[in-house]
Design a protein around this nucleic acid. Structure first.
Length: 588
DNA sequence: TCACCTAAACAGA
DNA sequence: TCTGTTTAGGTGA
């Protein structure tokens, strides 16, 4: 598994020596090579051009916060690793590989003997930081996909997950849980027992907390609630909850909703997109009801996606998609992430919570659409993503860098047809869906834009990824596409892991093949919004707010039939398509 | 106080 | 054994 730097780029090699971490004084930092690009990743491409600039920025930034800017922390490294992939997601083992491969410091630490410590730190960081989200990886076994939190989580200084969780009402519970745990331990409970109990308690409050794996000893309502939720979580419907951001989860903690939101085991665990589908299936939801909402979401989401992930069933405008999928591959949430998804719908509260905590408001996006007539826009202009998808077959690689680009202005307006696209667009299109990740991140208020992570899309990330935003406000996204810079790295890594890892999964390629299908689906979706035009707000408020559990089910058929189409880029939104297609959504 | 890092305990798969 | 979560302690700014 650990590649020992075999594929390292020459550039990287050059700087290797400089990557030794500092004595670990404060944070173990990986010193940037003085002249070298900060990015550990040091991709070949990165080294030149932008990468260098980045290094400069980092150095400048150093003055303020070292790790955040000048040095890369584990979190930064992980972020980069994730960003370096087309899909913007990696499994833990892939992250390890990436570290070994691209970070000189770890180059020789891939063996089990010397890897325990840093791997532990990697895991710790993944779990701890809200900027990372874990997505179920049904396709590959146990190891989950780790992705960047679309919402952005907190970069650098951002509050740690732990801290964040505490902020909410759950705090109390959480604390309590911990205490319990300790107490249990003190009482002589075995960890096994005590812990479970403890964690459960802990988690219960958070719902999301994986830790809560079902503790047994929990007592109290909390526990019940948790259990409840938890079990629900298992259900497809509940999966939605999984989508919830940690914060959300917390928010809900107080009131477990049947809607189930929450449940994902961990606050951050998002069901893979694939799973997303299932929710629909599971719930047996029927499109009709749900559709509108979905559409709405779609509208919002549409701009996002581009990733073309195979099965993103969800939609999300900002939401996190969540739906457990029966198995899909990998879809992750990239796109899904959006929060919106079902979770949103169901729980208005959640949304609120999110808003509170996070800069990005999910609702807003939707609203934005309606207000801005985004829907119409969609209708009128093809969504850019469609284009992308369409094209992306050709060159999966290039995409990364472009993610944001695709719609510099308004994603929605991009012409539906590739031809219509401007040259630039075309280029973007070429990129594989995955690359466009930025979209995935959709609503990211603040992506890890930290300057510190230049090469990566991070730079890109800072871009307003929020699809909604895009829709509502044309953004001149110009980021030069950092991707370009680091594309080299990305590519290499991308190739690396694609070839070596991802045993079959992800359907990434497959997706490409389906671009046409997707397009169709997308188009449909686009149209849908019109019909939906109705009133997103109303719907949201009335329907969604309704505690009632909505079954967002995407038709199973959809998933299957279109599954792929949808899955892909918009994919997430895919669900609706089938139904839509039949429907006369399209105005006119 | 904050942000990081490291170590470690634990649990589930 | 790997993965994932959480707790705790330590350090530097």
């Amino acid at each position: 598994m650990m590649m020992k730097n075999g594929g390292m780029d020459a550039h990287q090699v050059d700087i290797d020596s400089e990557f030794e971490p500092h004595s670990r004084s404060r944070s173990c930092t990986w010193p940037l090579p003085s002249g070298a690009p900060a990015p550990v990743v040091a991709a070949p491409a990165c080294m030149s051009g932008a990468a260098l600039d980045v290094a400069g920025q980092l150095r400048k930034a150093k003055s303020s916060r070292r790790n955040a800017w000048g040095n890369l922390s584990y979190a930064d490294l992980i972020t980069r690793a994730i960003e370096s992939t087309p899909e913007k997601r990696l499994t833990l083992s892939q992250i390890y590989d990436w570290m070994v491969r691209f970070v000189p410091y770890f180059k020789d630490k891939g063996d089990s003997n010397s890897s325990a410590g840093w791997k532990n730190s990697i895991r710790h960081n993944l779990s701890l930081h809200s900027r990372f989200i874990r997505v179920q990886n049904e396709g590959t076994g146990k190891s989950s996909w780790w992705m960047l939190n679309p919402e952005g989580g907190k970069m650098g200084k951002g509050p740690r997950r732990r801290a964040a969780s505490i902020d909410n009402g759950n705090r109390y519970l959480k604390t309590k849980g911990r205490i319990s745990r300790k107490r249990a331990g003190a009482m002589g409970l075995g960890r096994g027992q005590g812990q479970r109990a403890g964690p459960a308690m802990q988690d219960s409050p958070e719902h999301g907390s994986p830790a809560g794996k079902g503790g047994v000893g929990m007592g109290g309502e909390e526990y019940d609630t948790w259990t409840d939720l938890h079990s629900r979580t298992s259900s497809s419907a509940s999966t939605l909850s999984g989508c919830l951001s940690p914060i959300l989860a917390e928010a809900e903690a107080d009131e477990p909703e049947e809607g189930g939101l929450s449940c994902s085991a961990s606050p951050r665990l998002y069901p893979s997109p694939s799973s997303t589908r299932s929710p629909a299936l599971g719930t047996g939801g029927h499109c009709p009801t749900v559709e509108l909402p979905q559409l709405t979401d779609l509208a919002g989401a549409i701009s996002l996606d581009e990733s073309g992930y195979p099965q993103p069933q969800q939609i999300k405008c900002n939401g996190y998609p969540y739906v457990p999928a029966p198995k899909a591959e990998v879809s992750y949430c990239g796109p899904m992430y959006g929060q919106p998804s079902m979770g949103m719908l169901r729980h208005h509260t959640l949304m609120e919570t999110i808003q509170e905590n996070k800069p990005v408001s999910f609702q807003r996006p939707m609203r934005g659409y309606s207000e801005n007539n985004a829907l119409q826009s969609l209708l009128t202009g093809g969504p850019s993503y469609c284009n992308k998808e369409t094209v992306h077959d050709h060159n999966p690689r290039s995409s990364q860098s472009h993610m944001h680009n695709h719609n510099p202005h308004n994603p929605m307006h991009s012409g539906p047809h590739p031809q219509a696209l401007s040259p630039r667009v075309s280029t973007d299109i070429l990129q594989p869906y995955s690359l466009k990740t930025s979209n995935h991140y959709g609503p990211r208020p603040h992506l890890p834009t930290s300057p510190s992570l230049p090469p990566n899309p991070a730079g890109v990330m800072d871009v307003p990824q929020d699809p909604c935003r895009l829709a509502s406000a044309p953004q001149p996204r110009h980021q030069p596409y950092p991707g370009a810079h680091h594309q080299g790295m990305t590519d290499s890594w991308h190739g690396y892991y694609h070839n070596n890892h991802q045993p079959g999964n992800t359907g990434y390629q497959g997706q490409q093949h389906n671009s046409h299908s997707r397009m169709a689906a997308n188009l449909e979706m686009e149209n849908a919004p019109n019909s939906l035009d109705c009133d997103v707000d109303s719907i949201l408020l009335n329907d969604f707010m309704d505690t009632e559990s909505m079954d967002f089910n995407f038709d199973g058929s959809l998933s299957q039939g279109m599954g792929m189409g949808m899955g892909m880029s918009l994919g997430a939104f895919a669900c609706p398509p089938p139904a839509h297609s039949n429907q006369s959504w399209v105005p006119g």
